[in-house]
Write a protein that binds this DNA or RNA. Structure first.
Lengths: 143, 143
DNA sequence: AATAACAATGCAATAAAATTGCATTTACTA
DNA sequence: TAGTAAATGCAATTTTATTGCATTGTTATT
């Protein structure tokens, strides 16, 4: 799947601006989620801090990005699967948060069904595993 | 199970101070997790903001409290089960975050085993469901 | 292509949340 | 009960997030 920022914007009735395109490009670069502070570092010279906040928020609202909170309460963003809509996110896959490099992976593993106790109605669910990722466990052997 | 702050402190080699006792008392009041801002509101007159931060941190380090991040990146705290130690938390139960009252419940539901992809080694896992809790769904009928 | 309408951006100011250093107070030990 | 070390409170600072408004840029229409 190839990401085309311009089409994504069109599909969601968002105006085409260079800042919005840049944000999507940057996030599409890697398959892992990128944190808000990292984005800020990378795009800080091109895009105002406040604008970045606003772009990320509208992308989340529109179902273009999904937001994953890490252990420290930092927001991380990844591109949504095509099934996400403005009204409901379908990021029901397991996340993996590496405690070494802090990266958050969207794993190709579905969240198992979990039965809620009487009275509790779940509309969405998130599970994230913490540990050492692929790259770090390879790298740690080498170093 | 009855919570005795004084014994908890002793068991973990922590000095007995009235601030530490108050924090534990406050958290033990309810079975649901309480957010850092709520604690601050409740204890703000008795305990300095900074002290509260420090107490919560040491409690987490010692395995007395576990911290659950909600959707907004706000820290919530609940008393750990007895099996938690200084070196490893065992809060491997499902959390439920009510989108109405924002409360976080520690459900008596174990997280199912999830097989990680090759190269990924998980040392802990967290799953939280979002939706409407028991009390809110009852209350919403009434109101 | 020009322009009108409106949305997005950047900047400045403000607010909120978290952290640090240090003087004072408090708890535990001998 | 005196000494020691740790915990607390306060002030200052830093970091993160939010708001208002003037300016710029995008799109639809002619």
């Amino acid at each position: 799947m190839h990401i085309d920022p311009v089409n994504i914007l069109k599909d969601h009735d968002l105006k085409h601006t260079k800042q919005r395109v840049r944000v999507l490009e940057e996030i599409a670069l890697d398959t892992v989620a990128i944190s808000q502070p990292e984005l800020e570092k990378k795009l800080g010279k091109e895009i105002d801090r406040v604008t970045l906040y606003r772009i990320l928020n509208t992308y989340e609202d529109k179902g273009i990005l999904h937001r994953i909170m890490d252990m420290n309460g930092t927001a991380n963003y990844a591109i949504c699967s095509s099934s996400c809509t403005e009204h409901h996110h379908h990021d029901e896959h397991v996340h993996f948060n590496c405690s070494n490099c802090q990266k958050i992976y969207c794993l190709d593993v579905k969240i198992p069904n979990i039965k809620m106790p009487p009275g509790f109605t779940a509309s969405s669910i998130n599970t994230t595993a913490y540990g050492i990722c692929e790259k770090c466990s390879a790298g740690m052997k080498a170093d």
